[in-house]
């Protein structure tokens, strides 16, 4: 037996479908975003400073950093933190004793990042960061070296 979709039925089913679609869309938007944040140290030396057991950065990240206009030859991983953020929530992620990042998921791929150094807001930035992309904040460090805070979206 086939059921005919009368205009009255359509009047009920079409809005129902719309509401269901909206629920799915909202649910997809509300999914957690997963990130990795790295604190990196850049130098022309081939070894980390004495007394520090920094590991060289992952090959994938080293390759990405090579493509950026940065003059340092070697990059070492000082710290790494994995975290997830819910839609509309700000996650405070300490990456060292002096430095932390605050990440807020605004929309599906949009986020707001705030870098806090020594308790002061250094930079606040809003941008789109789809899966696999990276946002790198950096600056000069003593002895012609550099620091980087690298935020990578993994999901």
């Amino acid at each position: 037996m086939r059921t005919k979709l009368t205009p009255a039925n359509r009047l009920v089913w079409f809005p129902t479908l719309l509401v269901l679609l909206a629920c799915v869309a909202v649910d997809a938007q509300a999914a957690d975003a997963k990130f990795q944040v790295f604190l990196l140290w850049g130098t022309d030396d081939s070894k980390p400073p004495e007394g520090k057991a920094y590991k060289p950065v992952q090959p994938e990240i080293r390759q990405k950093l090579k493509e950026l206009p940065l003059k340092w030859a070697n990059w070492f991983e000082v710290n790494r933190v994995d975290f997830a953020v819910q839609q509309g929530v700000t996650k405070e992620v300490p990456i060292s004793a002096k430095c932390q990042v605050n990440v807020k998921k605004l929309a599906d791929s949009e986020l707001e990042l705030c870098l806090v150094g020594k308790g002061k807001e250094v930079v606040k930035r809003k941008q789109s960061l789809p899966k696999g992309e990276m946002l790198v904040l950096g600056g000069n460090a003593p002895n012609s070296t550099a620091w980087l805070v690298l935020l990578k979206r993994i999901e």
Binding site: L39, W41, T43, P49, K52, K64, E67, L68, P69, L70, V78, S96, A97, K98, C99, G117, V122, V123, R125, Q127, P130, G132, E133, M134, L135, V136, L137, G138, G139, N140, A141, P142, N143, T145, W147, V149
Partner: peptide
């Protein structure tokens, strides 16, 4: 870098006058 999907923001932080010690990563670590 659109092809690599990477954004670099280079800051003047810390200001040269703020670098108090000579430790590597002394500013952020």
């Amino acid at each position: 870098d659109y092809s690599a999907g990477t954004t670099l923001v280079w800051l003047s932080y810390p200001a040269d006058t703020e670098v108090a010690d000579n430790d590597e990563m002394g500013t952020v670590e």
